[in-house]
Design a binder for these strands. Structure first.
Lengths: 147, 147
DNA sequence: TCAAGATTGATGCACTTGCATAAATTTTCT
DNA sequence: AGAAAATTTATGCAAGTGCATCAATCTTGA
């Protein structure tokens, strides 16, 4: 039984470092996007989800689940994206309560324009700091946390 | 040279999962703290730093560096902590511009009161999901990201 | 069928964060 | 010493987030 569980302090240290590292790297990546005049990563994530979706359209509740955001945050994020013309809100045909959100061509253009910057930022602030095999290791270990 | 760098997609996937996993686990831990009537984790972190510091006192600029927070966020977080009585602000003796922030006995009491909840939350939402060795693995890999 | 309950999405209000900038020193450099 | 630059902290204002709650619709089940 002595090895069935990590040392408490090792686990707490890993927890602390997880929060610190992910926060620091995220901040650096966001800074690069902003420096290049792009909107925050959350905008990119929504547009990316839409671009992958059937008919480039999703319900807000789907976006909420995929992005792990609170309902009211999704609602307002979509407001901002719609106001900027990157998505459009349509009445949902199958559900009278709901809305459908569709990627516009401007949204698709933004997605394409952001990608090189985003990719370069992740590479510089994340990928290049790792050693071979680290990405796979992280992916595996962190997979246990996402359920 | 073929193996000197991870596959781009493996790195991007690891990046995405890092953000998702750390965000999700953080949210769950914060929820537990709030459910038990405690303030956010940021408050705990400040109090913990102070409790470890010489004379339980730090300059705001030190807290800023240790917690990787923006200067104005530190300034206001300390305002809230002082208003709640958990710290006190003193004129810095060595630097006329600066302030010194000292943990009060109420702050120390809060720190002690939060710890069991915090520890249990991390254990339930993080530690228990890991397998033996994962904590050390994470700590090592993530160490490359914190510089 | 139809009332009770669950789901979807929006919104008012308070609080927090980000940005730009100010004010008071301290440090550096000539 | 004295001017210029850097550091430390605070703050007004705009924007984003969390909470509670509402209105509309869909689903369930007697």
């Amino acid at each position: 039984m002595s090895k069935s569980t990590p040392t408490p302090s090792a686990a707490i240290d890993a927890w602390a470092r997880l929060q610190r590292a992910s926060g620091a790297v995220l901040a650096r990546v966001e800074t690069r996007l902003k420096t290049d005049g792009f909107p925050p990563l959350g905008w990119y994530d929504v547009l990316l989800e839409l671009s992958r979706a059937e008919d480039r359209t999703l319900r807000p509740v789907e976006i909420e689940k995929r992005m792990l955001l609170a309902q009211y945050n999704v609602s307002r994020l979509l407001d901002r994206l719609a106001a900027a013309g990157y998505i459009e809100k349509l009445k949902s045909p199958e559900d009278g309560r709901g809305v459908s959100v569709r990627l516009t061509s401007e949204g698709e253009a933004l997605l394409k324009a952001m990608w090189p910057c985003y990719q370069a930022a992740v590479e510089a602030e994340f990928t290049n700091l790792l050693e071979p095999g680290d990405a796979e290791t992280l992916w595996n270990v962190l997979g246990r946390l996402v359920r």
